[in-house]
Design a protein around this nucleic acid. Structure first.
Lengths: 334, 334
DNA sequence: ATGAAAGCGCTAACAT
DNA sequence: ATGTTAGCGCTTTCAT
């Protein structure tokens, strides 16, 4: 493990002060073309690369941002990560990925780590926690953008999906197709998106003068296995249900499995609507009716918002609203 | 944006030298209990957190590793990322995620960035490139572990999937089920896993005295859409094919779509086998026969290998071989 | 156009 | 048990 080549090595070999080398690597104008060329020559023969760590200590900028997600293996979040990473790469930023593993207490924890490493900003997706420590940790950071959940009292830019409308669209679609008893497999109880989707769901039911909502709603982890378990339990407890609205497509995939297992035909016996329109949604059998959410775009927009904040040093509180579009497929046809 | 609280602020307020503060935050024994308590008191009232950047400059360790993947939106890699992140978190390491977006030239680029940021090591998945610059970039890093592909001449620890056996198992399964003409939708031409799966495929065909392999093999991007396009083209060009082995489950999902579109029943007209056993594989209709690969485990194993290298400072060249298991489902029943 | 000096916030000897 | 002095590899004044 040979010692790192430093700016001094370059300076010495080029016969200039290390300040001149600094000027060259930072593209400062005040260097004569000949010395610049000579220095650049030495840089490449030595294979010198400036240490980002040293530079960060001197400039208080790291060219790194943090991304906090509940579950990177969830395609919803891995698509967002893809968008963030891509935009970041284009602008010269690296991405520190933090998975909270759906454990709310890890949120504060990773924000502290991100702060210790002096990221220039963070993008936090699907916050499950809102308490004082979380707010304090967020406030310490130089810049932050929220995705999928805002924090009252904390003016932070955010990219939000209009979940109320999404829930309303999904449920209304089922209702206007003739269903009367529509269940909601609601996802994590701590999920804010889930709460808002429940509002849209409740509103649609109310407009159709249907009640029963509290009984027809069950929470579950936002993964296939728990969606299956929960959908099966819900259908068993409420034989009157002829349709299910699901928190997301993963849960809907579980519901589809449950129906297959207990012998309920989709969409004839049970209609199913999901949320997100992950790639897999169109591939399921029957293909899944769902609310489309542009995940990669969300990632890019969040990064744009963050970059603006980093560059202007103003928090701002721009909120970008994304309207989900209902995509009608076979699991709940028109 | 108030100035960061530094070690000096704490020292001053506690009435000790900043060295003593350093000793406290590093849990050094040589501090009297009373001063330790006092310093800790000040630390918490001030909300002081040591700067990882400064510490990194002083120690030449960043407690950060890099993860390079071709496509984080691919569930195969997001599951690996999940495993790496989880193990890293448990050991106090953060993860810099780099997506090469399936663009081979970006590999060298991100390795340089990772080197500039002085990561303690990197895990590189599914390398698409092997040239001198790539090797040089890899060699500069203090530690590296490869996943899915080794580099001849560069003794680096690796976690490898036994793709030859996987390809052989998959193809043999089809052959012993009575198929004679089996196509291979082979994935990226630059993929090493793809090459090895092709070897297993060819070996199985040879054992059954079947030739036609070169014509029956087509490359494609490892995503659903291109899998669909390529499978359709292959089936159209070779009406004799009654089965397809696919590079991965995403491509297999595309093949399933293609069959649906062109009216070939699976598995009656065409049998299909995938690779990886991503979560979605069991959910497709028909459910997908595939080779199971434990992705989260691979991520954790790769991290373990990396950590050992970081801690011992020895490169080592341990290679962990993962044997894929054939999972027989409806798309290619026994 | 170039150089010298100070400082970023910490750790690591080396005193005392 | 505590303090002093360097030094990590850069950037940023301030001189020349």
């Amino acid at each position: 493990m040979s010692r790192r080549v430093t700016i001094d090595d370059v300076a010495e070999m080029a016969g200039v002060s290390y300040q001149t080398v600094s000027r060259v690597i930072n593209d400062k104008p005040e260097v004569s073309p000949t010395t610049r060329a000579r220095v650049q020559q030495v840089i490449s023969t030595l294979g010198y690369r400036p240490s980002r760590v040293a530079r960060s200590l001197a400039t208080a900028r790291t060219a790194t941002i943090g991304l906090v997600v509940p579950d990177i293996a969830n395609p919803y979040f891995s698509d967002i990560a893809h968008g963030v990473e891509q935009s970041g790469y284009e602008q010269g930023y690296s991405l520190l990925l933090c998975n909270t593993n759906e454990e709310p207490q890890r949120e504060v924890d990773v924000l502290h780590v991100l702060d210790d490493k002096q990221v220039d900003g963070v993008i936090v997706c699907g916050l499950r926690q809102t308490g004082g420590p979380l707010r304090a940790a967020l406030a310490r950071l130089p810049a932050a953008v929220l995705v999928n959940r805002q924090l009252e009292g904390l003016a932070l830019p955010a990219v939000m999906v209009d979940d109320v409308t999404g829930g309303y669209l999904a449920t209304s679609h089922l209702l206007t197709s003739g269903h009367r008893a529509v269940g909601f497999v609601a996802g994590p109880i701590a999920s804010d998106s889930g709460k808002r989707r429940a509002q849209g769901y409740a509103r649609a039911l109310a407009e159709h003068n249907i009640r029963g909502a509290p009984d027809w709603l069950r929470h579950c982890a936002p993964v296939v296995a728990d969606g299956e378990r929960t959908a099966a339990a819900l259908l068993e407890a409420h034989a009157e249900l002829t349709a299910l609205f699901c928190y997301n497509d993963l849960v809907a995939a579980g519901a589809l499995q449950a129906c297959k297992r207990i012998g309920r035909k989709v969409p004839d016996d049970i209609a199913i609507v999901g949320f997100d329109d992950i790639h897999l949604a169109a591939l399921m059998t029957p293909s899944l009716t769902t609310c489309h959410v542009p995940r990669v775009d969300i990632g890019r927009l969040a990064f744009d918002l963050l970059l603006r904040q980093i560059d202007t040093d103003e928090a701002g509180d721009a909120v970008i609203q994304i309207s989900p579009r209902l995509i009608i497929r076979a699991s709940a046809p028109g």
